[in-house]
Design a protein around this nucleic acid. Structure first.
Length: 480
RNA sequence: GGCCCGUUCGUCUAUCGGUUAGGACAUAGGAUUUUCAAUCCUAUAAGAGGAGUUCGACUCUCCUACGGGCUACCA
C-alpha cells in the first residue's frame, strides 16, 4: 500500500493540509505501507521553493516522516506533455484555440432553452483538420482539452460510499495549458499511477474532481486507485478553514507555543474519535487504532479552546528538562536568559508549568521570576488593596522579614518557610492570608502564582528578602 | 444558476432499528487550596423541519431548509 500527501507550495501548510497528511500517515502506517511526499508545483507562477521547504519543515516537526520524496512535479513536465499529446493522437483529447475571454463571453451570454451554459461548448471539437493546420501555422496558442465521453462514472469512496455522476455534467477540462505546462488533473493522474499510489486520501474539495480524474485514468488504460475524501475543517465561522483565516500556517502554531503532540491529538479527533477521549495518544498508538471507515462524513469546526486545553495537559505531563529543551528550540525569548544557570531555569519551569497553556506563556514568568521585571501598578494590586491596606501590608511584611531573617539560608525550604510564616501570623493575631497575599505580590507582582512557599524557596533567602524590601520601598514612596 | 457532499448538546464526537441518547472541551456550582491552575463531584445542554417505511427510527427512504464544496489555461 502506498499513499501520498501532495500539497501545492503556493501557500503555507495550513491546518487542513496537516490533517490530510496525518490521516494519510495514520492509514498507511496502520496498513504497513509507504507514505510518499509529492510537491504539486505545476503552477510555476504561484509556487515557490520556500513554501515547499516550509511544508517539509512542518511535517518533520509533527513527526510525520515520509518514506519517499519529496518528489517535485515540476521535474516531470516532459512526461505530462507526452501523455497529453498521446491522448490527442488517440482522439481522446483535442486542441482548443479559444481564449479564456472568448469562452467566458460565450458562457455568460449564450443561453439555450433559457439555461445558462456552464461548460465549454466544444467549439473547437468541430474544427476541420485544415482549420487546425491553419491555426497551427499561424501559431495561434491552444490548450489540449480532454474529451469527456458519454455515459456515467462511478466510484466507491471509502468515506462517502457510492458516488455517481452523469458525464454530461462534466466539462472538457484542460490537460495542457497554452504554455505547455500541465494542469493539476493531468499531473496527479500520471503521478499517482507512476508512483503506484493505491489510496488517494484528500479533502472533500476534490470530491467532484474525482470523476474527471477517473475518466482520465480510464482513457490512459489505467486502474484508478481507491479514494477517500475527508470532510473539510471549518473555522469558527463555519467557513472552510484556509489561508484566508489568517495565521493558520502550521509553523505559526509552533511559534505560538503549541507542541506537535497537541496538534496530532487534536487533529486526530476531528472526524474521528480515538478510543478514549480523555487520553493523550502517541503517534504509534493512533496508528494502531486508525481505520478509514470509522471517519465521519461531516465537517468539523476547529475549536481553539480544546486545542489550548490539550496543549496545557501535555505541557503538564512533560518533564521540566524536556520542556526546557522545547523552549530553547522554539521560543526566541529564551536567548535573553543565557546567563542564567540551566538548573535555575529548569526549576522555574517545574514551578510554573501547571498553569501554562502554551510554551509562549512561559515568557511572562521568566520575565518576572528571573529578570525580576516587577510592575506593581496593575489591577492585581487594586484587588489586593480591597482586603489589605497598604499600611497593613507594609507592617506585616516587615514582621515577616524578621522571621525570614532568622531562617538559615540552608534551611530556606518550602516547609520551613511555611512554619515561619504561620508562626508570624499567629503572633500578630492575623490570618496567614494577610501575609501570604502581600508576600505573593511582593515577590511576583501578581495575584496568582504557584504555592507561595515554593516561590520563596525558588528565590532563596537573599532574593526573597530583596524583593520584599523592594515592594515595601515602593509602598513607602507611593501613598505611604 | 447547475452538480455534488453534509446536518446528534455552544464545539469535537459515541450510537451502526429498541439506550434514562454516552464521553470530551467550554460554561455554571461544589469539594480541595494561601491564590490561580490542576484534580474530584454535580449541573446545564442535542438528534434542522416535514412526510413516509416499520410493532418500533437519531439510525432506512423522500421532500424542504440550512451549511459547505466544485463549477479556471489554481491546486
Amino acid at each position: 500500500m502506498k499513499v501520498r500527501f501532495a500539497p501545492s507550495p503556493t501557500g503555507h501548510l495550513h491546518i487542513g493540509g496537516v490533517r490530510t497528511a496525518l490521516f494519510n500517515y495514520l492509514f498507511v502506517k496502520n496498513q504497513g505501507g509507504q507514505f510518499i511526499l509529492r510537491i504539486e508545483d505545476t503552477d510555476l507562477s504561484r509556487s515557490s521553493r520556500e513554501m515547499a521547504e516550509e511544508i517539509l519543515e512542518g511535517l518533520r516537526w509533527l513527526g510525520m516522516n515520509w518514506d519517499e520524496g519529496p518528489i517535485y512535479q515540476s521535474d516531470h513536465f516532459e512526461k505530462y506533455r507526452e501523455t497529453a499529446y498521446r491522448l490527442l493522437e488517440q482522439g481522446k483529447a483535442y486542441r482548443c484555440f479559444c481564449t479564456p475571454a472568448e469562452i467566458e463571453a460565450r458562457k455568460n451570454s449564450l443561453e439555450n432553452d433559457g439555461e445558462k451554459i456552464y461548460k465549454y461548448d466544444r467549439l473547437c471539437l468541430n474544427l476541420t483538420s485544415e482549420q487546425i493546420q491553419q491555426k497551427l501555422r499561424e501559431k495561434t496558442p491552444y490548450v489540449i482539452r480532454f474529451f469527456i465521453p458519454t455515459g456515467k462514472t462511478y466510484f466507491k469512496d471509502a468515506i462517502h460510499k457510492e458516488m455517481e455522476t452523469d458525464n454530461s455534467e462534466l466539462e472538457d477540462f484542460t490537460l495542457l495549458k497554452s504554455d505547455n505546462s500541465p494542469t493539476y488533473h493531468l499531473s496527479v493522474v500520471i503521478d499517482d499511477c507512476d508512483m503506484g499510489i493505491t489510496h488517494v486520501i484528500r479533502g472533500d474539495d476534490h470530491l467532484s474532481n474525482t470523476f474527471k480524474q477517473i475518466l482520465l485514468f480510464k482513457a490512459l488504460g489505467l486502474n484508478p486507485p481507491k479514494f477517500a475524501h475527508l470532510p473539510l475543517i471549518l473555522g469558527p465561522d463555519k467557513k472552510k478553514l484556509s489561508k484566508r483565516h489568517g495565521e493558520t500556517s502550521i509553523l505559526e502554531f509552533k511559534k505560538n507555543g503549541y507542541l506537535p503532540e497537541t496538534l496530532v491529538n487534536f487533529l486526530s479527533q476531528l472526524s474521528w474519535l480515538p478510543a478514549d477521549s480523555k487520553k493523550i495518544f502517541t503517534m504509534e498508538e493512533l496508528v494502531k487504532q486508525f481505520s478509514l471507515n470509522k471517519l465521519s462524513k461531516s465537517s468539523p469546526v476547529f475549536d481553539y479552546d480544546k486545542l489550548r486545553f490539550l496543549n496545557g495537559r501535555i505541557i503538564q505531563q512533560k518533564e521540566a528538562k524536556d520542556l526546557y529543551k522545547l523552549l530553547a528550540e522554539t521560543q526566541p525569548f529564551m536567548d535573553e536568559y543565557n546567563e542564567f544557570p540551566e538548573t535555575k531555569k529548569i526549576n522555574l519551569i517545574d514551578l510554573v508549568k501547571p498553569r501554562m497553556k502554551t510554551l509562549a506563556d512561559f515568557e511572562a514568568k521568566f520575565n518576572i521570576y528571573l529578570k525580576g521585571e516587577l510592575n506593581y501598578q496593575n489591577n492585581d494590586l487594586d484587588k489586593l488593596n480591597e482586603t489589605h491596606s497598604n499600611t497593613d501590608m507594609k507592617r506585616y511584611l516587615k514582621e515577616l522579614l524578621v522571621k525570614l531573617g532568622n531562617l538559615n539560608e540552608s534551611r530556606f525550604g518550602s516547609a520551613e518557610i511555611e512554619a515561619e510564616l504561620r508562626a508570624c501570623a499567629a503572633e500578630n493575631n492575623i490570618d496567614a492570608a494577610c501575609l501570604i497575599h502581600p508576600a505573593r505580590f511582593a515577590l511576583t507582582a501578581e495575584a496568582v502564582s504557584p504555592s507561595i512557599f515554593d516561590v520563596f524557596a525558588f528565590f532563596g533567602k537573599e532574593e526573597s528578602i530583596r524583593r520584599i524590601n523592594r515592594f515595601i520601598d515602593y509602598l513607602e514612596k507611593n501613598n505611604g
